[in-house]
Design a protein around this nucleic acid. Structure first.
Lengths: 246, 246
DNA sequence: CACACTTCGAGAATATCATTCTCCAAAATC
DNA sequence: GATTTTGGAGAATGATATTCTCGAAGTGTG
């Protein structure tokens, strides 16, 4: 399955199903299913819509649906990939309006945060109930879906690194993953419980956290030298065990 | 066939005991359901077990199940709460073996990371497919389930703050939420895709990220002075919009 | 002990979906 | 025009959660 990580994973999969030149029609049908699903998702705010509903709204048939998709999960995956792809685009665009690498990163993080938190009735909800579900049921596919966004962030990080604006030991791709997860899930986590007055995290807080963590600079500077991280410890049968960094 | 004990002077106690006994029995039944569910979860590594299976393994009946639980989701919630509670306990215990506030925090973060990533066949899998599902379907309940862990982390942060080891603007409870989400989800995110050789994030990386973010200290120090971090901003229409700092 | 009352077991009955399958017609291909 | 492919309509299947029905066993009360 190791194909180019480039663009449309789902489209490839779906279109490959139809053999000959009628790929165009297949593509159009796939589009119709996706559009219908998008509408339904916006209306109901969840992915609880049934396949039957998608079929009805798209004025096609169940058979056709299963002809083009391996199942509902593939439809959701397609939507997911689509949303993430667009998000990556928007982030690139937003970042491109700035020149300072750190500013570009900040813009990216803030935008990602906002996009991750918009109501699921939005046009392309980045985050609905199905995202986490897919994460455990189809990790590989989710990974490819994440790729564009991951790459976009990694590029921004690489730029910043080359400008000497990042901690020396930051590895862009890995930090990109860390940031992506952090921002998206934290944006998601403070979904307003129907009644309770919550005090949701703000973009400011998330950005500052990603950028600086919680340790103040002076302590950080002090710490790098002397604190023997995890000097002595004795847990037995515990899953916690890491090499003591010298 | 039980015959009533005909001792004198029991009225009050009898009634009292009856309700109490009833409660105890109910509690035991609930326990049995929970135990059975736990076993099933460990065996199958997912929450895909059916309610019927839980019923069978616990040698009880469907009716009884729905008498004690509002539905499967409540059972899962109970398991989830249980796991989080135990996790909070373990973290407190681990932290208590250290004195330096930052070390205590480090231990907590690392342990949480490890616990969040252990195979779902573990005794009390902190993280299975259902956790994220519940996050969107029952946010309020999930919030209360998170509470113990959140509090534990917040306490550690408060200690560190009082020792002057945290950034001055860190608010413990909010930072605790941020850290909890970050650690748990990042631990989760690199589930090994069946084949692909992944390079999962390590506890080191996550801890360092939480502690210091990605900006090096010297840049951070420079930045606090001149870069007006989100000084003035006006959100309109587009979720992201702030003045480009010159 | 006999009666009312609560608590459950066993399992049938429903309801909801995803997914398949069957039959058939229209469209494309040869 | 014949054959193959594609697609529509919708019934059939299968898996589950959830309810419902019927009693039986247990418990407190006179």
């Amino acid at each position: 399955m190791g194909s180019a990580t480039e663009e449309p994973g789902w489209k490839q999969r779906a279109v490959e199903r139809s053999t000959q030149a009628a790929k165009i029609r297949a593509g159009q049908r796939v589009e119709r299913f996706l559009d219908a699903a998008q509408v339904l998702m916006s209306e109901k705010g969840t992915t609880d819509f049934t396949v039957q509903e998608v079929v009805d709204h798209s004025r096609q048939s169940l058979r056709s649906f299963y002809l083009h998709f391996d199942g509902k999960h593939e439809l959701l995956l397609a939507l997911f990939e689509d949303a993430l792809g667009h998000t990556a685009q928007r982030i690139r665009a937003a970042a491109s309006e700035h020149t300072d690498p750190l500013e570009r990163l900040e813009v990216a993080v803030r935008l990602l945060f906002e996009l991750s938190r918009v109501s699921p009735t939005a046009q392309r909800p980045l985050f609905t109930d199905f995202a986490p579900r897919l994460l455990v049921s189809h990790p590989a596919e989710v990974k490819t879906a994440h790729a564009p966004l991951l790459t976009a962030l990694a590029e921004l990080l690489t730029d910043a690194a080359q400008a000497g604006l990042l901690r020396a030991d930051v590895r862009p791709r890995r930090m990109a993953a860390l940031i992506m997860q952090t921002v998206m899930f934290n944006a998601q986590s403070n979904r307003r419980g129907d009644n309770e007055p919550t005090h949701p995290l703000t973009a400011d807080e998330v950005w500052t956290f990603c950028a600086h963590g919680f340790v103040p600079e002076d302590v950080a500077l002090r710490a790098t030298g002397n604190r023997a991280m995890s000097a002595a410890r004795g847990q037995r049968g515990d899953p916690l065990r890491w090499p003591q960094s010298p």
